[in-house]
Structure formats: C-alpha cells, structure tokens
Write a protein that binds this DNA or RNA. Structure first.
Lengths: 343, 343
DNA sequence: CTGAAAGCGCTTACAG
DNA sequence: CTGAAAGCGCTTACAG
C-alpha cells in the first residue's frame, strides 16, 4: 500500500509561492481584488494547483462557524423506496448552493428522531430537515427545539411552528375523479387504502367532493389496503357482482395492480370494460403496467426541491418571518387505463 | 424568533466548574483515571450537564484529524428504491461504530462520481464507499485514486485493487432452478431480463448449470426485460402456445408480476397450472403478490452491513492487506407460487 | 500592496 | 493531582 502523502495546507502553498498564508487565503477566496498583484495571484494559483491543494473544510468550518452541511432526518424514506425522490430533489438544490446532506433514517422511531437531531446538532449542521415517507401531521417539537433553520417535507405541524411543504392530496383525489367523470363515467368506485392514513382520507374526500359537485351519488368506498394482494381480493369481490362499476379510482398504484390482476382473472378488459386510475406514479409500476396506468403523480422531487429552497432562504435570512406552510399540486399523468364510458 | 444562545464551550464548563479546560477534556473523554479527584470529576460532569455541553465535533475533528464520517457514493440507489436496503445495512453498522454517512448519488454519471470523491475528500471523510444499484463490474480507478480506506458494495473491480462485497447471483439462479426441479418440473422456462446486465447473465447461467446437472434440456430462454409490461407480452406469447412450460423462472420480481398478469388473462392458475419463482424479494411485490411469490432474496441489507464492517476494519488496521473480494449467498424465500408438477 | 497576529474549540504532551 | 501552552488549518481585521 502506498503511503498517503500528507494533505497540502495553505502554508505549503504559501511557501511554494513565496507569500504569506493570508495572501493564499485571499486569492483562493476571490477576495484579492485590488489587494494583490495579478502575477502574484497567478503564482499562488499555480502553486495551489501544483500541490493539489483544497482548503480543509473542517478548519474552514471551525473558523467560519458554518459547516455547509444540512442534516436531514427521514422516518422511513431511506428504507422503503419511492420517497427517495424527495431526497433527490433536496440533494439537487442543496448541492447547487454548496451544501452537502447528512442523512439519518429513524425507521419511524420517535426516540431515534430526537437522538438524530442531537447527533446532527453536535455535528454542527447549519440547518435541519425532516422528510416523511407518507404525508401526515407530525410533531414539530423536537425539530423546533433544535433551534435554527428547519423545514418539514411531506408533512406539517398542527401549530404551524415550523415551515413545511406537502402535496395537496385532496385536490389530487378530486381531479382524478373528475377525469373519470369527464370521460362519462357515473359509476365510479374508490378502492384501496386504509383510513388511518391521512393521504387516504384526503384523496377519498377529494373523490367525494367531485362526485358531490357532479351531483352523482358515490358508491360506498372499498377500503382495500395499499398492496397488490389486498386490493386484488377486494376488487375480485366487486367485479364478480352483477353490477360492477365502470371505473375504479385506486388509492395507490400498487392497489391498481391488484385491480388489474383481478380484472384479468375475470376477463374484464382495461380500459375497454373498466377504466382505472392510480395514485403515486410509482416509476416501477405505473409506466410499465398493462395497460400503462393513468395516475396522479405525487410531486416528490418537487417537494424536496421546494423544501430545500425554503431552508436555504431561512439560512440566508430571506425567508418570511412566519413559517410558511406550502402546499403543492399533484399532476394527473395520462396514460392508457382510462377510456370513455361505453354506452 | 428566540435568539439562539451561543453553544457552550469547554471553557464555559471549566469556568462553571472552577477548573481548567484540560480537566474538562480529560473527564469528558473518560481519561481522568487516577488523575483527577472523584468529586472534581463529578463537579465537571454536573457543569457540563447544566450547560447542555456537547464538544464541538468540528473542533475535535480538526484536532484529531478524523471526522468520524464515511463518504458513500451511489450510482442510482438513492434514486430508484430497492437498493435503499444497502444503505440501511451500511448505516446500521456505521452508526454502531460512531460514524455518520455523507451520501451522494451520481445518477449513474461517471463524471459526477469523480467530483463526488473530490468533494467528499475535501470534507475529510475518513473512508469512502461506492454502492451500486445492480451488481456489476465497476471501474475502481477513481475510488483507488482517492487514497485511503475504500470499499465497493454490490459491485467489484476487475483487477481486485479495491475490496468489495457482492451477491452470488449465479448460485442464486442455480438454486432457484433446483427448487423447481425438486418439485418435479422438467419443463422450466427462464423469462425476463436483458443480457447487457451482468446479474441476468449470471442468474441465467446458474439456471443452465442446474439443468445441465439434472441432465435436462433447457428451453431457449425468453429475454423478456425487467418490467411488468415486457414480461407480460413475452409470457402471453408463450402461454398461448400449445406446449406451455409447467414452471417459469422470472429474471426479477416485476417480471414475475407480468407473468402472473398474463397467466390470469389466459386462465392459467398459479401455482396449480404453473409454478413461478421471482428474484429480488422486492418488499413491495413479492410478499403481497397473488399468490405470494416464492423468490430469491438479494441480500442487500447484508451487503451494506458486511461492506461497512470491512471498511471499519480497514480504518482500524485490522483488515487483511490484500483487498478482499467477498461474495454472499442469496436465500430462497419460500412462499406460495411453487407447487409440485401435476402428473 | 503584504505579513504578523489573533482566534474558531478542542486535545495532549509537559511542567509544576 | 492540575494548569499553561502548543497546535490542528484556516480567515480576517489590522498594522505596516
């Protein structure tokens, strides 16, 4: 194994260039303006390059009292996929502003959450984010107590004491139902989800809003869970009845797969005999389903991007003084699982 | 907004306790042994607690020249789900050893990979890991050039110049086929994947190994892609022929969903008429499929755990001098999609 | 236009 | 048994 050479320091650069460390610092931080002779600057830059010098970020952090690091704690995102896009969006804008993310996943354990903030605080992160897998109300206490800039992504606090950004699931549910109504369907069934989940209640409420607006009686929703198997069973029972709906609004994309499986089993064609809309736009499911699934996209990348931008605004003092509660729209992705109602 | 009080420093603690900073440091690092009077120690600890003192980790890092941080760069894990479990496993053991992970995802862009190592190096991480979404051979150059402890997770270098840990996909493919053979099937079809992916070639080779050992002629494999739709089309064509196989080995779990969908469409019962095995044990698919899917589990958590352990061994100098290339077994998860061949 | 000095918050020999 | 000093690698007034 080769011996790793000691990292070059600004002193090394100064020595090589024949100047003082101050000069090196000034030049490398672009503050040499009218202070240092142009050719001296060139010499210094050359020396830095020759030594492959990078300022020690820990020394800089100590001196500036800023680490250019943002701590983000997640409840279960790192563990369960999908949510990953929140992190992608967040990373994108953090990186653009020179921040790196220090991530810790709590596996949904509140005790771990508190410890996480403490560890992150000890690491002197400049700001803190909490990002949730599923939209829900979340206790802002630990985050607020940490002091300093903070943001909640894909969740929000009841008392609005911490800024947050989350999707508008209710309008999402309404629009999905509206799409089906516009295609001429009256007999639209809500299927899937569980009512302990806020997102399900909101989406379902949106569906009810749309039906009410259209003056059409809604069917009793079938609370068929979030997974393929549970939705399959629920759908099978419904589709075998004499009066199946002509359209189904699935609580999420995986439930939609269950519906598709049940329909295939019953010889029911999608979208010929049955229109179907999902929720999430899960990249591993919706675009590759048979047929490709029309679905409401959860704006995860955007949530991450917006949240991080709000956090950076706080860091730079340009955020509004009252914590903002931002809500972002869900977009309907049209594919091939919806057809006009056959007369 | 409340003014955030300045963090307490060891000086504050020393003042409050009426001792020197050295004493504070000694006590708080448990090196006060026979040096400092027990009651003085107690006074110091009480003062630290009263001030809610935590040593500044950046000052400690500067002093000790160690950041207790490990940089991990991923190709696409953070973006695409599944692979998340590698990070879970890695985080688990890193945390247990007092390390935090600084993660950056390259979106599969080699240029970004190099930059990532540089940024991480500038942050003075103590060690570097590269984790891949799909098992493959990967250029170890950038990682090696970074110098210092390094590990490749779920991939490996051709020249073995960097330690690595990856799954034994070939044996996985063999065992899956063997399971079907043991159930009495002769007519076993490989379906799914694409041959540009190493994992597919290895799994398929394992299947061929098993068939050859059993002295049974393998069917021509159907290279039907990794997604629901492509596998569905491929399976439909096969299942409609007069001589469908009695068992299918799917290249991954999503391809298995495509097969299940096609079977449902054709009125073919799984596992009654057709046995099916997947690959991955994707938590959002396999356990919730209809029927629950028997599948080869990719040991992602374990890969992360083992990789991080190997890295920490390097850090503590207890790793073997030659970079180890560790390979870990895939486990068959028995569920309900396999039945004995009906006579 | 440049250099010497102070200081960010720690830890660790070393002198007393 | 304890305290004063050096030093980790920077940046930033400040004096020249």
């Amino acid at each position: 194994m080769p011996v790793r050479p000691r990292r070059a320091t600004s002193q090394d650069v100064a020595n090589l260039a024949g100047v003082s460390r101050s000069a090196v610092s000034l030049v490398l931080n672009d503050r040499a303006d009218g202070n240092i002779a142009p050719d001296t600057q060139a010499t210094i830059r050359a020396a830095a390059r020759a030594l492959n010098y990078t300022p020690s970020s820990v020394a800089v952090s100590l001196r500036r009292q800023r680490t250019q690091t943002i701590g983000v704690v997640t409840d279960t995102i790192a563990s369960t996929a999908y949510g990953g896009h929140i992190l992608i969006g967040a990373t994108e804008v953090a990186t653009a502003h020179g921040y790196l993310l220090l991530t810790v996943d709590t596996h949904d354990n509140p005790a771990v959450e508190t410890v996480a903030y403490e560890r992150l605080h000890a690491r002197q992160v400049d700001a803190l984010a909490f990002a949730a897998m599923g939209t829900h109300e979340h206790d802002a206490g630990p985050l607020r107590d940490a002091g300093g800039p903070a943001i909640m992504i894909n969740c929000f606090s009841a008392d609005a004491s911490v800024a947050s950004v989350s999707p508008d699931e209710r309008t999402g549910g309404r629009r999905a139902a509206q799409r089906l109504l516009d295609a001429g369907h009256h007999d639209i069934l809500w299927l899937g989800g569980t009512l302990d989940v806020l997102a399900a209640r909101e989406r379902l409420q949106g569906y009810h809003d749309a039906m009410a607006d259209a003056g059409i009686r809604a069917r009793d929703p079938v609370i068929g869970g979030w997974n393929i198997d549970t939705a399959y069973e629920a759908a099978l029972a419904i589709l075998r009845r004499p009066d199946p709906p002509t359209a189904i609004l699935a609580a999420n994309d995986r439930a939609a797969v269950g519906v598709a499986l049940a329909a295939a089993r019953c010889g029911i064609d999608i979208p010929g005999d049955l229109s179907l809309i999902g929720y999430d736009d899960d990249e591993n499911v919706a675009p590759v389903m048979v047929p490709p699934l029309t679905t409401m996209r959860l704006p995860h990348d955007e949530l991450g991007r917006i949240g991080m931008r709000m956090l950076i605004d706080q860091l730079s003092g340009s955020a509004p003084s009252a914590p903002a509660q931002v809500v972002v729209d869900c977009e309907l992705i049209e594919r091939a699982s919806v057809a006009p109602r056959s007369s």
